[in-house]
Structures are given as C-alpha cells and as structure tokens.
C-alpha cells in the first residue's frame, strides 16, 4: 500500500491543482487576518469556508482522481499487489494531499501573524482537525460513489448531490422537522440528528470552542452541555471517525469484488 500511496502522492503534489488549492487557502488566510485582526472572528469565517468549501473540493477532487486514474488502476491490477492496497493507497494519497494544502494554506498565515495564545491555538487546532476529518470523509465517500458507478456523469452528479444534501438539504429537513414537531421536546433528537451529519458535527465542534454557543439559545446550551464535556467531545470525534471507517471499509470490500 505504501508504494501506491507514495507514488500517487508524488503525482498529486506535482499537479498544478494542489498549488492552486494551496494558494487559495493562503490568500484566504492572509486576507482574513490582514483585514480582521480579531483572530476569533477570523476563525468563524474560516470555519464556514473550510466546512463548506473543503468538503466540496474533497468530494469533487476524489471522484475526479478516481476516474482519471482508472487506466492506472487497471495497469496495477495485473501486478503482484494486493487489490485493496491500490484503492486504499490512492484514497490516502488524495486525502493527505488535500489536507496538506489545507494545513499549510491556513497554518502559514496563522504562524506569520503570530497566533501564540494557548486558547487560540486550541481553537485553531480544532478547526484544522475538523477540516482534515472532512477531507478524509468526503474523499472516502467520493471513492465509494466512483466504485459503484462506471458512468462518470452519474458518479459526479451523485457526489455533488451528496455534498449538497449534507450542507443544505439535511439542515433544511432538520429545520422543517423542528418546526413540525415543535410541541415536543426535541433537544435529544436534534443532538442525535447532528451526529449523522459530518458537516454539522464539525461546525458545532468548532462553534463550541468559540464560546458563542450562548447565541444559540436553549438548544445551544443543551449542545454545550453535551459536546462541551469530554464525553460529548469524544462521542463527536468517534462519530467523525465512524464517518471515515465505514466508507473506507466498504471501499476495501467493494474494491476486492469489482470487475475491471
């Protein structure tokens, strides 16, 4: 697996896409910190961009990379390599290269502007961890979709639809259900519903670090009392990990069965 990972990563790091993506984050990071010296507020803006944008790039880039390397995969399948190593190696390479762009692109401006306050560093680390998780989750989902769909247009559409569902439609349905059942106590239900959406989960984890959960009213307080505790935090991290583990193990399973 390491050979495939190493090869794919060096291939990705040579591609102009990675640099384009990196410079986007650099520009965003420097721009935000330059115009808005309040780092806490910059983190909120960054959060919104990272949560929405990096997941979109991860799902699109993941599916594009698979379809573009189909020939390469066929070539590798005839070689003495374990089948699942090919898929897992490539998956890891795409996720790591996207995460590197994110970490460097946002990390460098923060270092340059000298974020040294321990509290801010903690916020920043949670933000980066959420971004990296989202990269690994959305690339894994993209690879799953690509393995099930030979037709590129279909695969691409499903990938975008998945992202749209997680960023917009899920919240919409969530809101509608909250309105419909407003007579009932919904705190627990909304907590559980949040766990099923990696984007909401990352967003809440970051917001709670920023101490603005008070702005979210009673629900905010409930969330704070759950996610704010070590137990809640661990549950959230385990849920995000499950969002990586389940698609990756399916990737391995499907990769071993698929005909080429």
């Amino acid at each position: 697996m390491f050979k495939i990972f190493k090869y794919s990563l060096s291939d990705l790091l040579r591609s102009s896409w990675s640099y384009f993506y990196l410079s986007f984050y650099l520009l965003l990071g420097f721009g935000l910190l330059f115009f808005n010296p309040d780092v806490s507020k910059s983190v909120i803006t960054l959060m919104n961009v990272i949560v929405v944008f990096s997941s979109l790039i991860a799902v699109v880039f993941g599916i594009m990379y698979y379809y573009n390397s189909r020939e390469f995969i066929e070539l590798l399948l005839a070689q003495p390599i374990k089948r699942s190593d090919i898929f897992i190696g490539q998956y890891m390479a795409v996720s790591v290269s996207l995460s590197l762009s994110l970490l460097l692109g946002v990390g460098i401006p923060f270092l340059v502007y000298g974020v040294a306050d321990a509290d801010l560093i903690k916020k920043f680390l949670v933000l980066m961890a959420a971004g990296v998780f989202l990269n690994f989750i959305f690339v894994a989902v993209a690879y799953n979709i690509a393995l099930y769909h030979e037709n590129r247009i279909k695969g691409f559409s499903y990938a975008i639809l998945f992202w749209l569902f997680m960023t917009l439609i899920y919240d919409g349905l969530f809101l509608v259900s909250l309105m419909t059942f407003k007579e009932y106590p919904l705190e627990k239900a909304s907590l559980v519903a949040t766990l099923f959406n990696p984007i909401d989960l990352s967003r809440i984890l970051i917001l709670l670090q920023l101490d603005i959960s008070a702005l979210m009213g009673y629900t905010g307080a409930i969330f704070k009392s759950f996610f704010g505790t070590t137990f809640g935090f661990l549950i959230a991290v385990s849920c995000l990990s499950l969002w990586v583990i389940v698609p990756v193990s399916n990737l391995r399973r499907k990769g071993n069965k698929k005909d080429f």
Binding site: R70, E71, F72, E74, L75, A78, P80, I81
Partner: peptide, 14 residues
C-alpha cells in the same frame, strides 16, 4: 501475479 507477464488488450495508460 508475480509469475505472470500480462499484455492488456487496450493499452490504456495514465
């Protein structure tokens, strides 16, 4: 597979 040399029908290369 290390005992097999294989020439695929359609030379699809990256």
């Amino acid at each position: 597979r290390s005992q097999i040399s294989y020439l695929p029908q359609i030379a699809n290369f990256p």
